[in-house]
Every structure is written in C-alpha cells, then in structure tokens.
Simulated scan of single mutants.
Amino acid sequence: MEKVVFNKLLKFAVVGALGTVVNEGIYVYASKVIPISIALALGIELSLIFNFFLNDIWTFRDKRVGTFIKRMVKFHGSSYLGNVIQYVVALVLLIYMLHYTSLSQVLTIIFFVKQISANTLILTNFLGILAGFLVRFITSYKYVWA
C-alpha cells in the first residue's frame, strides 16, 4: 500500500476511533429512554456527522473538491452501506447474545425501551462498527474526497 493511502487510512482510523466513542456514548445513553433500534440509528448518524467534520478538516483536507455541503452529502451517501452493515450486525449480534428466539422477543428489543447491559450494547455495536469500517474508508477515499 502506498504511503499516502496508508497515512490516510491511519488518520481515518483515528477519526473513526473518536467517532466510536461518540457513537457508543449516544447509543448507550439514548437506549435508556428510546427503543434500541432508534438509539442505534441516532448514535450512527451523530457519529457520522462528527466523523465527517474531522475527516474534512484533517484526514482529507488536501483532497477537498466541491462545496462543504456537497462533500457532506457525498459522505452520507457513501457511508450508507457501512451504516447498514453496522446497524444489522449490531442488532443481530445483540439478539444472538441475549438468546432471543421468539419473534415477540425480537420485536420487543427493536421497538420498545428495554434495559440491557451497557457492556452488551457496547460490544455488539463495536463489532458492527468494525464490520462497516472498511466499506466506509474505501467509499470515502474513492468517492467523497476523490
């Protein structure tokens, strides 16, 4: 891998690590008052905005093309697949780790407020974040800041 790409990947990973803290914090705290499915989506979206700002001013500062709004829309669009991967992986792992087998249990966890251990939420979401990371980097590097 060429040095420039490696440096961008390293910076992207640092931003992602900071975004992970934002994502996990919002997810865990929001899940105490709103359904897990909504808390997870909220954590993903707010961390995505956070990551965009940091990537725009640091990681890809030298590759800015178009307006700020255009880059942000492209970043959201390019991150969509990674976000879906994260969301699905996190929820599937959560259901698996809680040993839920009935449809009513699954629907309860997705659509209603239910107290679940913060450690379980953090672990399953983190694995989802890892699953979406590579997709987000490739689309950011090849599309958003190309």
Rank of each mutant, 00 (worst) to 15 (best):
T108C: 02
R71E: 09
S31N: 02
G25R: 03
F52W: 13
N119A: 15
T108P: 00
S104W: 00
N125G: 01
Y29M: 09
V84L: 12
V22P: 08
L9D: 05
G82D: 09
D62P: 00
K32C: 06
I49T: 13
L18T: 14
E24A: 15
I49P: 05
L10A: 15
A39R: 02
G77R: 01
I122M: 10
Y141E: 15
G16L: 05
A118W: 10
F137H: 03
V5I: 14
L9T: 09
M1N: 06
I116H: 03
M1A: 09
I69G: 03
H76V: 01
G128T: 06
V84M: 10
R136L: 07
S37E: 07
A90R: 01
L94E: 04
F137N: 01
E24F: 13
V28M: 07
V84E: 09
M72C: 12
T101W: 04
N55M: 02
P35N: 11
V113K: 07
T124V: 11
Q115L: 07
F50W: 13
N55S: 08
V89M: 02
D56P: 02
T59D: 04
F133T: 13
G132V: 09
Y80I: 14
I26E: 05
A30S: 10
I49N: 08
Y29P: 00
I38G: 01
L18G: 15
N83H: 12
E45G: 10
G128P: 06
G66I: 09
V144H: 06
V14G: 00
N7P: 00
T120E: 11
V144G: 05
V22H: 05
T139H: 00
M1Y: 08
